[in-house]
Design a protein around this nucleic acid. Structure first.
Lengths: 157, 157
DNA sequence: CTTGACCTTCCCACGATGGTAAACCCTAAG
DNA sequence: CTTAGGGTTTACCATCGTGGGAAGGTCAAG
């Protein structure tokens, strides 16, 4: 099978198939004499596995582990379960973070007249300094991006 | 104010301040004779506004619009509201997509013994061909990770 | 043999952020 | 005045998964 057919069959784009090979997620495909990659049914199967794992939000790194367990006939289901649980925990963290955002925004929107007047509680809130710091303590984590603080500087001056 | 002090005051890293300037989100800062960027209180204020909008998940592109409205004294609050609603809709889409993932995963985990035996419904499900497609329709959304990337693959099957 | 649909590799882009390095600037202490 | 240490500047690289495109080779049908 050519990469195009493999792509259709596995629902993984040709671009991604090459990428997965490049980063070592899948072994290098066999080549025809002229350099075309060829794929077997087993290869398609693996690609489809990857595709489904991606659809469940697993990162490529996580899929590396999943593939390892998949191929390991003596695996322990506890290992798979642990991977899945960790992933769920990560998803839950992100969901929670985004829910927090939407809740805040929905509360603000609720207070916004949404008419021709310029007054808007949304802008006012963004404008204001740090009010409503319910947690004075530095809460580590729970926020998706901006993992590292800006703190490199010392307060020497 | 130096960029370091501006960073502390606005809670935006110096790196990001330069980046925002580079991409035109904020105007070029004034410079001292020796080339140091200097910031006024108004600049800090704007940076803080940006920071707060980022914390609510607005993209830089969206913040560009928010800043425009912020500066437009004759704005209509309806415009702000619309921006916020669109953003909420996007957040809701991603939340929904991730909830779908966790629901699926939690159901699978529930069925996984998690012991020393190799049998695992999670792997089996990933392995299997397309079953349980409750929606035969092309689900274009399904934006997994923190993606902005149009995961709308062609899928010319 | 030509044409068009494939395939190959290589490079670029996205978004927002951090890291590093080399060079320069500033200030306070000696 | 000199020096040390920290702040600043630019420039480039990396992330992560994906797509786009160019330049050129291959293949199969007409």
């Amino acid at each position: 099978m050519n990469i195009g057919e493999a792509s259709k069959a596995s629902k993984v784009s040709a671009k991604m198939i090459r990428y997965y090979e490049q980063i070592g997620l899948i072994p290098p495909a066999d080549r025809t004499e002229s350099g075309y990659r060829t794929y077997t049914q087993a290869d398609i199967h693996r690609l489809h596995f990857i595709r489904r794992a991606r659809d469940l939000g697993f990162s490529v790194a996580e899929i590396t582990n999943l593939l390892g367990l998949w191929n390991d006939k003596s695996r322990q289901s506890a290992d798979v379960k642990r991977l899945a649980q960790q992933h769920i925990a990560e998803l839950d963290r992100r969901i929670e973070s985004m829910l927090q955002m939407t809740e805040t925004l929905k509360a603000l929107i609720h207070c916004c007249a949404g008419d021709e007047r310029p007054d808007c509680p949304i802008l006012q809130t963004l404008e204001q300094p740090d009010t409503s710091e319910d947690e004075p303590e530095e809460r580590t984590g729970a926020v998706p991006r901006r993992s590292h603080g800006t703190r490199t500087a010392k307060r020497s001056r």
